[in-house]
């Protein structure tokens, strides 16, 4: 379970509060979308959850562990974070090596590393890519490999930051199918509201560092006025209706 209580945050050197006094709770197994205009604070929320920024006020608990320096290793083992830019996420020479990076770092035996790596690749149907060089992959393949790199940690919580950016329609659909097939808690931030509509049953709308709405995805994504007042638009699939 994730619990964010009265959390405020400003980046170093900035007087402006990026997040001000936000509260939410995410139960195990939920799929939650975080939406908002550029600069609303979506990515900051994600960074706070995984402890990439620790200088926050308030309280963030992940599975009853407070997000603070001494708990980071344990927390990060429970959370898989898929970055917006796959090129930044993938830094090893081959797909196999990249997917095996986390289990190796957590000190698993070679057999366990292999089992987790192959398992992660199989779970999203890309085992044929395992010997490929990263720089030879297409954008869509890189995104799927990025997911595999975090699945090999067998995390309880998966976080996706703007996952469909730069994906063509076919790869986007493939990604959505993969996302829906994954078990565990999922948090997705995106401007792609159709993606949120297809993958999340709960949505949090953030604007200027405040939570404006937290509830059923269909309710918010059909509320044209609320979306437009916060720099967003109805999902394309709903605009056509």
């Amino acid at each position: 379970m994730i619990e964010v209580k009265e959390v405020s945050f400003s980046y170093n050197g900035s007087k402006k509060q990026t997040l001000s006094n936000i509260n939410f709770k995410i139960e195990d197994g939920e799929s939650v979308g975080i939406i908002g205009a550029n600069g609303a604070g979506k990515s900051t929320v994600l960074k706070l959850l995984v402890g990439l920024e620790l200088n926050y006020q308030g309280n963030i608990m992940i599975n009853n562990l407070k997000v603070e320096k001494q708990n980071l290793q344990e927390i990060r083992q429970k959370i898989g974070y898929v970055f917006q830019d796959s090129d930044s996420q993938l830094f090893m020479p081959t797909v196999y090596e990249d997917v095996a990076f986390a289990p190796r770092n957590y000190g698993f035996s070679n057999e366990e590393v292999n089992e987790r790596t192959v398992g992660a690749l199989k779970s999203i149907g890309i085992e044929e890519l395992q010997d490929r060089q990263i720089y030879r992959l297409s954008g869509g393949e890189k995104k799927l490999v990025s997911i595999a790199t975090v699945l090999s940690m067998k995390p309880d919580i998966l976080i996706f930051d703007e996952p469909t950016i730069a994906l063509d329609p076919k790869n986007r659909r493939r990604f959505i199918n993969v996302l829906n097939s994954l078990k565990g808690t999922k948090i997705v931030t995106s401007h792609d509201l159709d993606l949120i509509y297809d993958t999340c049953n709960r949505t949090i709308l953030i604007a200027d560092g405040n939570i404006i709405f937290d509830g059923d995805t269909k309710t918010i994504l059909q509320n044209k006025d609320l979306l437009e007042n916060n720099g967003l638009e109805l999902p394309l699939s709903l605009q056509r209706r």
């Binding site: 990439l52 290793q73 990060r76 959370i79 830094f91 990076f101 986390a102 190796r104 770092n105 957590y106």
Partner: peptide, 18 residues
């Protein structure tokens, strides 16, 4: 890139492949 490594268990003080 460093953040990505950190989030997957990389620790400069203890890092080495077993």
């Amino acid at each position: 890139v460093y953040e990505s490594m950190e989030l997957r268990g990389f620790d400069p003080d203890t890092f080495f492949i077993k």
